[in-house]
């Protein structure tokens, strides 16, 4: 499009400071809330509101600048690199929890059961504990409290989780179909594909909410159900949160599409949203295999 000598450098940014203020207020409020302070909740609401207004404002600004042609090809590459490395940081974040699952299943739980270097640990701490998976630990934790024989049910892979796998895999197809529509200037296909992706995404979240409700109300499976409950809800919970974020991003892209935004040459927001969606998809496949099936 144009060469680097007209590189666009934005000036006088006010949204980043507002973002910082919102984020810091939200987190300080959450910390106060956890400490039982009454100013916690109001601070969180204020911080969150500022953050949402900032998101709307900053992204509107970026979208307007993009549509008025301020960004050249080089700026587009910077944005794409930014998104790629952001997704890499997200991968590392999920890697922590997958690593935790691997470590506890294969090392710390067997050690508690007396394997390898754990012989003395077992004798001294919990001589009656036999290592198995899933487990809520030698203290039979339920709701974070030790019990005598606290039992819980393992989440099965082949009910809602399998359905959710099919949903997310289909949504990967629909978003690619939408991308083809965008590249081939077929706006109807673009809108239909995006709408289907968003619908599948939110349906996934609803199914997961049902699954969580069953776990909490009927299966004795909560965040406090020992290491199985901890890893299960931490992994699927953070993933579910990312599905929500991804679906909201795609909704914004859908909204912009209906406003006539994007062209086959200029559609960074669409690409970023699609990459993010595929990332969320791949994480789910990892979860389905390592958390549900194995």
């Amino acid at each position: 499009m144009s060469s680097s000598d007209t590189y666009y450098i934005p000036h006088k940014a006010t949204w980043p400071v507002m973002a910082t203020f919102g984020l810091a207020t939200l987190l300080a409020g959450f910390a106060n809330y956890l400490n039982g302070s009454s100013i916690g909740s109001p601070m969180m609401i204020i911080g969150f509101t500022i953050f949402i207004i900032m998101l709307a404002g900053w992204f509107t600004l970026q979208a307007t600048e993009s549509e008025t042609g301020l960004y050249n090809k080089q700026v587009g590459i910077s944005f794409r690199m930014g998104m790629m490395w952001f997704i890499f940081s997200e991968i590392m974040f999920f890697a922590v929890f997958f690593g935790t699952l691997w470590y506890t299943r294969n090392l710390s739980v067997p050690w508690l059961g007396g394997e390898g270097i754990g012989a003395a640990t077992k004798e001294l701490l919990w001589p009656n504990f036999e290592a198995h998976w899933p487990t809520n630990g030698p203290g039979h934790l339920l709701d974070g409290k030790p019990t005598e024989h606290g039992e819980f049910e393992k989440m099965s892979a082949w009910g809602l989780p399998f359905l959710n796998t099919l949903l997310l895999l289909s949504s990967g197809v629909t978003v690619t179909w939408a991308h083809h529509g965008l590249l081939e200037k077929n706006r109807a296909q673009l809108i239909k594909g995006l709408a289907a992706t968003v619908a599948l995404g939110f349906l996934f979240v609803i199914f997961q909410a049902i699954e969580y409700h069953e776990a909490y109300s009927e299966m004795g499976l909560t965040l406090g159900t020992g290491i199985y409950g901890s890893t299960f809800f931490m992994l699927t919970g953070f993933h579910g949160f990312h599905v929500c974020v991804g679906a909201i991003i795609l909704s914004v892209v859908l909204f912009r599409t209906t406003k006539g935004h994007f062209s086959p040459e200029n559609h960074f927001a669409f690409e970023a949203a699609a990459w993010y969606w595929h990332f969320v998809d791949v994480v789910w496949l990892g979860l389905f295999i390592f958390v549900y099936i194995l």
Partner: peptide
């Protein structure tokens, strides 16, 4: 109530 770093769980 998680027990990532708690052997009892």
């Amino acid at each position: 109530g998680t027990s990532f770093f708690d052997a009892a769980g």
